[in-house]
């Protein structure tokens, strides 16, 4: 009862102001950054920028192969990560819950999520490019990114599976459903929106990664589109990195425009995640 007087009110207001500040400062910084990038980017942005191949002349250079490469990468990464990640999460959460093996795996996954992405790049280079003989291909790049986001997808999926209450699982078992029938028809549909959101967010993070792709060997000057999984490729972050490091000042404008395209792609992916989640949740009441 000591703080319910005037002093309590002051503390309350102070706290609200502090929280508001915590919202405004990062958002403001982000806005300033974005405005700065956008002011440079407008001179290059346009349909031609999206559909042009790189060029030695800054004004003619575009992000077409990098943009397409990024889209391919994100889809292939999703295709590789989702089954593996969800499968691992189901195993850990539904089948091997308390075992020593599960604890060991859990510890490893938590650690893997904290490993710097360049290390994954080196792993990808050794494992996929060299040993598996994939070469510096789209598939090797996507596989490397898949490794990178796998721990995050597993953790997000486990979290989503954990939110399905025990009472529903028991309800299903009591009706004579097997474990698989219960997982497939009761647990997964309920956990699905959470799994989807977590996975898309993780993959959109992977789309912005540069370091592992550089290590795996994405090209920086590509005048063709990848036509197969084994084809060489480039991606938006690589293209941006390339333009930024050029001595000619005009290329900075290209880099800014590239950043806007990359941001747009990531935002679109996130928006898709939110849209799918909302739609699915509505369907499941």
């Amino acid at each position: 009862m000591k703080h319910t007087g005037r002093r309590g009110v002051v503390i309350e207001r102070l706290f609200v102001a502090l929280c508001l500040g915590a919202v405004i400062v990062p958002l403001g910084l982000l806005l300033i950054l974005f405005a700065d990038v956008l002011s440079d980017a407008v001179q290059r942005l346009g349909w031609a920028f999206l559909t042009s191949f790189p060029s030695r002349k800054a004004a003619l250079a575009g992000v077409y192969p990098a943009f397409v490469g990024t889209l391919y990468l994100s889809f292939i990464t999703a295709g590789l990560t989702l089954p593996l990640g969800v499968g691992a999460a189901i195993y850990l959460e539904e089948y091997e819950r308390r075992g020593r093996l599960a604890n060991l795996i859990e510890l490893n996954i938590a650690n893997l999520a904290g490993v710097p992405s360049v290390i994954y790049g080196l792993l990808g280079l050794g494992l996929f490019v060299r040993i598996a003989g994939m070469g510096r291909s789209l598939l090797a790049g996507a596989a490397t990114l898949a490794l990178l986001v796998l721990p995050i997808v597993i953790m997000a999926s486990r979290e989503a599976l954990r939110t399905v209450p025990l009472s529903l699982r028991e309800g299903s078992y009591a009706l004579g459903a097997t474990r698989w029938q219960t997982i497939r028809q009761v647990v997964l549909p309920m956990a699905f929106p959470g799994i989807l959101t977590g996975s898309i967010l993780a993959i959109s993070r992977a789309v912005g990664e540069t370091a592992p792709l550089i290590v795996v060997g994405a090209l920086t000057y590509v005048t063709f589109l990848p036509d197969s999984l084994g084809a060489p490729f480039t991606a938006l972050p690589i293209q941006i990195f390339n333009w930024v490091s050029r001595p000619q000042a005009e290329f900075v404008l290209n880099a800014a425009a590239g950043i806007v395209v990359l941001l747009g792609t990531m935002l679109a992916l996130n928006a898709a995640a939110i849209f799918l989640r909302n739609r699915y949740q509505k369907r499941t009441y």
Partner: peptide, 28 residues
């Protein structure tokens, strides 16, 4: 041997009809 639990636990993702038929549907 059917069972009814302490807290009602209808499947939230299913309609009334689907809940009734859940046992048969789950087990195909």
């Amino acid at each position: 041997v059917g069972m009814v639990f302490q807290k009602p636990n209808p499947f939230p993702s299913m309609s009334i009809r689907d809940n009734v038929l859940a046992g048969l549907r789950l087990t195909h």
